[in-house]
Design a binder for these strands. Sequence first.
DNA 1: AATAATTTTTAGATTAACCTAAAAAATAAA
DNA 2: TTTATTTTTTAGGTTAATCTAAAAATTATT
Lengths: 221, 221
Amino acid sequence: MAISFTEENYLKVIHRLSEATSEDISTNAVAELMQTKAASVTDMLRKLAEKGWVNYQKYQGVRLSVEGEKIALSIVRKHRLWEVFLVDKMGFNWDEVHEIAEQLEHIESDQLINKLDEYLGFPKTDPHGDPIPNKEGILPELAYSHLSDIKATKTCKLMGVAQDSAVFLQLLTKLNLSLGAKLDIQEINEFDRSIFVSINDASPIFISHEVAKNILVKILA
Amino acid sequence: MAISFTEENYLKVIHRLSEATSEDISTNAVAELMQTKAASVTDMLRKLAEKGWVNYQKYQGVRLSVEGEKIALSIVRKHRLWEVFLVDKMGFNWDEVHEIAEQLEHIESDQLINKLDEYLGFPKTDPHGDPIPNKEGILPELAYSHLSDIKATKTCKLMGVAQDSAVFLQLLTKLNLSLGAKLDIQEINEFDRSIFVSINDASPIFISHEVAKNILVKILA
DNA sequence: AATAATTTTTAGATTAACCTAAAAAATAAA
DNA sequence: TTTATTTTTTAGGTTAATCTAAAAATTATT
């Protein structure tokens, strides 16, 4: 069935909200991410439900149907593969690619996206460490920890970020924090929950709790 | 000023029609290429004129303004660069890329298109031999002959095609006619204007006038 | 449990891009 | 130069996606 860019964006947003919770997604939550009004969302949810892509009962919130989930994952797949292309092949920085990928994710051609996947060497994650769903729409669950959740002095590897905003990514770049960076936690301060950490064996610096919350790491030792 | 996909497509179509003639473009001609009705075209032409992208007087036809020409050429540039990408990097055949490029040409990012240009090695023509406008929107005029216009037994090189339809391109592929192919004209038949020609030194075959009209060549000898 | 606050939905409009049918203008033919 | 034909425009409507304002349902608070 034909799908519009707008419908694709709604499915993508509902999918993103569903990842964070097992509860139904509220109209307001969708409205906020779609940067639109709740009334518009209500209209669209009814339409998406008619097309069979979401389960929606009025006043009860919404969730993706199996079919809707499939569509959402194919958009995520396209978005993340294009991000890899933009960084690996076009030479963009990781904080510059989100907006362009938002456009490219709507290009419709299974053949193209599978050829692109191959051309990029079947990458497992995008430049922010987010996993890329495969052709069958299966998204490997990567169980990484939030740096902010770590309670002891450990050595970790930066595997991803929980936020794609340019300001955040630029801050990480300034701190020399990129995918794969080694983090030696020296101290965790109870007072402001800031972390004193050495990055790639450099002299340790302070990282705020706010930043640590958005950094995903694998614990090495 | 903001521009919609639809507006971009109208400007592209008006540009294409303007290349073939120096006269003003008729509403009906635009309607046919846009696959829409004349009444819809009238509405859009008024809108495009208000935005300053075309010069339009009712009942007098339309032509691009300087600004409109600039926009149209930037779309053509994007379309043709993406076609090169699809063929050279993604491994598509020249008859498979038009529809995908129709989507990709609307991606908005000057940075991306200039990086893509560089990545592809600043190609001069697309996979069909059509010239690619440069960053400044200047389209090099390539003066090639239509194979059908050649009146004597000559040796030529295939430089482009005047049509991008998949059926036509697939026929050329079947005849072993690709960009750069050598054509030795053996005979031109007065009766049906068909051409008896050797392709890359193979044994000569007949090519219809209809096909020859859509083949662009450089005369070598 | 009743009331207050919040969330969500309905009702009615708006805009972009399209449509059909009819009117008007331009062009071609008698 | 009238008349006929074709082209183009106008008038009025439709659909998708949005909006504001008001009504209804849900949730939270006394």
